[in-house]
Simulated scan of single mutants.
Amino acid sequence: MAIKSLALGFLALVASAGNSDALPVLPSRIPGVAYMTNHPWGEPLNATQTATLIKAATSGKLANYGGPVINNVEVTLLTWGTGVNYVSSAAPNNLPTFYAGVTNSAYYDMLAQYGTSSQGSIGRGTYKGTIALSGVPSGSSITDAQIQTYLKSLVTKGTIKPNKNSYYPIHFAPGITIALSSSDSSCSTFCAYHGTIDISSLNVGTQYLFYGVMPDQGGACAGGCGSASSTFKNLCSVSSHELFEAVTDAAVGLAQTYGPPLAWYNNPNGEIGDLCNAQQATITDANGQAWTVQKQWSNSKAACASS
């Protein structure tokens, strides 16, 4: 079974029958995904649900299963389709400024606690630029399989050159739906997710490609993927959820048991962002710019935190 990580509570998990060691699929939940607010695993959680999550997380915290983390993330923003919002908008209300700011902030520094001698330390990251994708699969409904095939073609052509620190969040134009299965689709059950592709066969010097899928947060996503006052702020919150999960559990998309390549994970509650699903906060980056983000689980504080 493979786990895929989705933002705000919905984790995409594909189970293989008969594997007693496989990671379990909780009712209506897939590891690594962010759920819509009207989904059983989305926010807002009621008091009982919140208490259950926090109790489980506090007792077990995030366990380290030994898989890869991203040590100093290098974010390259990919845009899919025409009219992707918040890319060319005036700063600071754009995604390039967001990724540059969040990866250079005290908020991001909280990830240092998840560095180890074997996996390496986790330090601040950088924003590397934006690529407007061309020749993407046509249509208003795209599958994750299509996304993975297309990304591999970009590596083969040299359009993107991933290394062990590369993270590629794909931001989609309005009106494009991403399907993980016949019953799970963007802005219907989930808000976003992050995934992993094994590219070792391409001989490009790194084993994995780490990517995120960020649907436009207007339309059907509006109001279901965050409680902030603007679509952009909710998009930032969802994007921070996936960024932090990609850094601390980079290869979750290929995990089949409670062991490598799974990294930091809480059984059965999910990844660093899932334990604090849709709990928003305002942080300030190194340039003094404020951002709406999601709180993330801190083992050291045994709580959801933003620093």
Rank of each mutant, 00 (worst) to 15 (best):
E242G: 12
A255Q: 13
A263S: 15
L262S: 10
I283Q: 00
V293H: 02
L262R: 09
Q280H: 01
V238E: 04
K301S: 15
T257Y: 10
T248R: 09
G219M: 14
K295H: 06
G218C: 12
Q256A: 15
L209N: 02
A251I: 11
F210D: 06
Q289I: 14
I272P: 06
F232M: 01
Q256W: 13
A251F: 10
K233D: 15
I272C: 08
S229K: 03
I283W: 00
Y265M: 03
L275H: 05
N269D: 13
N287T: 11
N267P: 08
N267T: 12
P268Y: 10
T248C: 15
N277R: 07
Q256S: 15
D249Y: 07
K233H: 03
F244I: 13
P260K: 09
V252N: 14
G253Q: 04
T282V: 03
V213C: 01
S227M: 06
G288Q: 05
I272Y: 00
F210S: 05
F210A: 05
D285L: 08
N269G: 08
Q280P: 05
D216W: 08
L275V: 12
I272K: 04
N266I: 06
F232E: 04
S240P: 08
A250R: 08
I272A: 01
G219D: 13
T257R: 15
L209A: 05
M214Y: 05
G219T: 11
V252Y: 07
D216Q: 10
F210V: 10
Y258W: 11
V238R: 04
C221K: 10
F232Y: 10
G223I: 11
V252H: 12
N299T: 07
S300D: 15
Q289C: 01
Q256E: 15
S239C: 14
C236K: 03
L262Q: 11
T206H: 03
A251G: 10
C225R: 09
W291I: 05
Q217K: 09
A263Q: 07
T257G: 15
Q207L: 06
A255H: 13
N234Y: 04
E242L: 04
N234D: 11
N287W: 00
F244M: 12
L262W: 03
N267Y: 13
G205Q: 03
Q296K: 11
A286G: 02
